[in-house]
Amino acid sequence: MTRVTTKGQVTIPVDIRERLGLQPGDEITFEETDEGYVIRKEVEADRFEKWRGVADTDETVEDRMRDLRGDLP
């Protein structure tokens, strides 16, 4: 059984965290149902979308890797 702290916090049991794939920093929602509440992990529709355009460059992969390694052309 889990208890609510005075700060309104609860510890989610390990087996439930593992089944939900919860990691520190993940966001969850509590949805009310006729039977009680359901915990859901918030998942972005496309978790890679936030990275789109971050590495926009005209360099080739080989050129970029060479730059990162500090290799001379």
Rank of each mutant, 00 (worst) to 15 (best):
R69V: 06
P73L: 09
E49Q: 14
D26V: 02
V54L: 13
R64T: 13
I16D: 04
A55S: 09
E35N: 08
I39H: 05
V4M: 10
E59P: 01
Q23P: 00
R40D: 02
Y37V: 12
R52I: 04
T6A: 13
A45K: 15
Y37L: 09
G21T: 09
R52C: 08
G21D: 10
D67R: 15
V10Q: 07
F48G: 10
R52H: 14
R64P: 00
R69S: 06
I28Q: 06
R47Q: 15
G8A: 02
D58I: 04
I16L: 12
R66K: 15
P13R: 09
T57A: 10
D56I: 02
G36Y: 07
P13F: 02
R3C: 04
T29W: 05
T5C: 01
R69G: 08
K50V: 01
E32P: 01
E42S: 09
V61L: 13
W51F: 15
D56P: 01
V10P: 04
E35V: 06
G53N: 06
Q23E: 13
G25C: 04
E62N: 07
T2K: 06
V14T: 11
G25W: 04
G8N: 09
R3L: 08
Q9K: 06
T5A: 01
E18P: 00
T60F: 11
D15S: 12
E27S: 03
T57N: 10
D56L: 08
V61F: 12
L68Q: 12
V38Y: 08
V4A: 06
E44R: 11
G8T: 04
T57D: 12
E59I: 07
D56V: 07
E31H: 07
W51K: 11
E18T: 14
R69K: 11
A45W: 02
G53I: 00
K41E: 04
T57H: 12
V4N: 06
F30P: 03
V43C: 11
M1G: 13
G21V: 09
V54G: 02
W51Q: 13
R40T: 07
G8C: 05
R40G: 02
T57I: 12
F48M: 14
A45I: 04
D67Y: 07
P24K: 03
R52A: 15
I28L: 07
F30W: 09
G8M: 08
R19K: 15
E44P: 04
D71A: 10
E27H: 02
T60H: 10
E59W: 13
F48H: 15
V61C: 03
Q9T: 03
V10W: 03
M65V: 13
E62F: 08
V4P: 03
R66Q: 11
V43S: 13
R52N: 15
T2S: 11
D58W: 00
L20T: 01
T5K: 03
F48Q: 14
L68R: 11
R47E: 15
T57R: 10
V43N: 14
T29R: 13
G25P: 01
F48R: 15
R69I: 07
L68P: 00
I16A: 05
K41V: 05
E49H: 12
P13E: 05
I16C: 01
A45L: 12
M65L: 14
F30H: 09
T11S: 07
T6P: 09
M1T: 08
R40S: 05
K50T: 01
K41W: 04
